[in-house]
Amino acid sequence: MAQKAHPTSLRPTKGLYQSSTHWDEARLYYILSTVHKLIDSCCLGTTHYLDKIQVNRHLGLIFIEANLIHLHYRPKHRLKSRRYKENKKDPNNQSWTLVACRLHTAIRLIQNFTGTKKVILKINKLKTYTRSIPKPVRRQMSYYTRSFNSTKYNYARSGMQLMSLVIQDKASAFSLSRFIQQNIYSRQRRKRHYEFLGYLKRGFQALQGYKKIQGLKIQIKGRFTHKAKGRSRVWKYQMGQMPISQLSKPIQAEYAQTQTGYGSVGLKVWICS
């Protein structure tokens, strides 16, 4: 039986690397994948998501351009009491300052790793807020964004913002897969998994009338049951058309894997822009 090819391997899309001079072919993919993982790790645990990255090299200079998406978990004009501010001892670990410090350290690591003289990093940050989402969509998803559900559905506001960017063709499949991967990993109970997947389905259905992409498909396969010998289940959602067999259609594909309390879970995301 023949193996299925990756959708992006058959389409002439732009890769991570573009330059006149290149590294040795044996080390090219290893260096690019390491740089991509290093920049992506700088955004872990924060409100920033890596969307796209481009690496250019000329002689002893490396130019890295990355697009980040800044999501806001809380409303902008949230009232906080003086007692809340005084008793809060945890620092703000989701701010841009933490990401900037990590990126500054990543530049030194990339310079020592590649052996080049100079590394230039350019960050294009896209900020998004909940008020940028259409009002009818916010009304349909108001149950998840209410104050008494802020702890249970802490991904509600940021998820709506990211799904809105995906529908408008402003976010890539990598950022969406990273968001789903983090939330599946953080929820170890079966009911919480189903609540998150139901939230994804309801959010995309509410945004379906505002889509500017041709199609979207998400497939999650893994063990969500609490039984020791439970079989893996498959959760699928598709919006629009996904012509994978047509090579002329630009399709973004991202495959990822995460772990839950019951086993491993595979994640696949396709976006046809």
Results as ranks from 00 to 15, higher is better:
Lys76Gln: 11
Lys76Glu: 11
His77Thr: 08
Arg78Gln: 11
Leu79Trp: 00
Leu79Arg: 07
Leu79Asp: 08
Lys80Phe: 08
Ser81Gly: 05
Ser81Thr: 14
Arg82His: 07
Arg83Thr: 09
Arg83Phe: 08
Tyr84Gly: 04
Tyr84Gln: 13
Glu86His: 13
Glu86Gly: 12
Asn87Tyr: 05
Asn87Pro: 04
Lys88Asn: 06
Lys88Phe: 07
Lys89Phe: 14
Asp90Glu: 15
Asp90Gln: 15
Asp90Pro: 07
Asp90Tyr: 15
Pro91Asn: 03
Pro91Ala: 05
Asn92Ala: 05
Asn92Val: 05
Asn93Lys: 09
Asn93Ala: 06
Asn93Arg: 06
Asn93Cys: 06
Asn93Asp: 12
Ser95Thr: 07
Ser95Phe: 08
Trp96Gly: 11
Leu98Glu: 14
Val99Pro: 15
Ala100Pro: 15
Cys101Met: 15
Cys101Ile: 14
Cys101Ala: 15
Arg102Gly: 08
Leu103Met: 14
His104Val: 13
His104Phe: 14
His104Asp: 14
His104Gln: 13
His104Arg: 14
Ile107Cys: 02
Arg108Leu: 14
Arg108Pro: 07
Arg108Gly: 14
Leu109Gln: 14
Gln111Leu: 06
Phe113Cys: 03
Thr114Cys: 10
Thr114Ala: 09
Gly115Lys: 04
Gly115Tyr: 02
Gly115Val: 08
Thr116Arg: 12
Thr116Asn: 11
Lys117Asn: 04
Lys118Pro: 02
Lys118His: 12
Val119Asn: 01
Val119Arg: 01
Val119Met: 00
Ile120Ala: 11
Ile120Tyr: 13
Ile120Gly: 06
Lys122Cys: 15
Asn124Tyr: 03
Asn124Lys: 05
Asn124Ile: 00
Asn124Thr: 02
Lys125Ser: 11
Lys125Pro: 03
Leu126Glu: 09
Leu126Ala: 08
Lys127Val: 07
Tyr129Met: 05
Arg131Gly: 09
Arg131Ala: 06
Arg131Glu: 13
Ser132Asp: 14
Ser132Gln: 13
Pro134Trp: 01
Lys135Val: 10
Pro136Cys: 04
Pro136Ser: 07
Pro136Asp: 03
Arg138Asn: 05
Gln140Arg: 15
Ser142Thr: 05
Tyr143Ser: 11
Thr145Tyr: 05
Thr145Asp: 07
Ser147Asp: 12
Ser147Cys: 13
Asn149Val: 10
Thr151Tyr: 11
Thr151Met: 07
Lys152Cys: 03
Lys152Ser: 10
Lys152Ile: 09
Tyr153Gly: 01
Tyr155Pro: 03
Tyr155Glu: 01
Tyr155Leu: 01
Ala156Trp: 03
Ala156Asn: 00
Arg157Val: 06
Ser158Arg: 08
Gly159Thr: 01
Gly159His: 04
Gly159Phe: 03
Gly159Lys: 01
Met160Phe: 01
Leu162Cys: 00
Met163Phe: 03
Ser164Cys: 09
Ser164Tyr: 13
Ser164Gln: 07
Val166Asp: 02
Val166Trp: 00
Ile167Gln: 03
Gln168Lys: 12
Asp169Pro: 09
Asp169His: 04
Asp169Ile: 00
Asp169Thr: 01
Ser172Ile: 01
Ser172Pro: 08
Ser172Trp: 00
Ser172Glu: 02
Ala173Ile: 00
Phe174Ser: 13
Ser175Thr: 03
Ser175Ile: 01
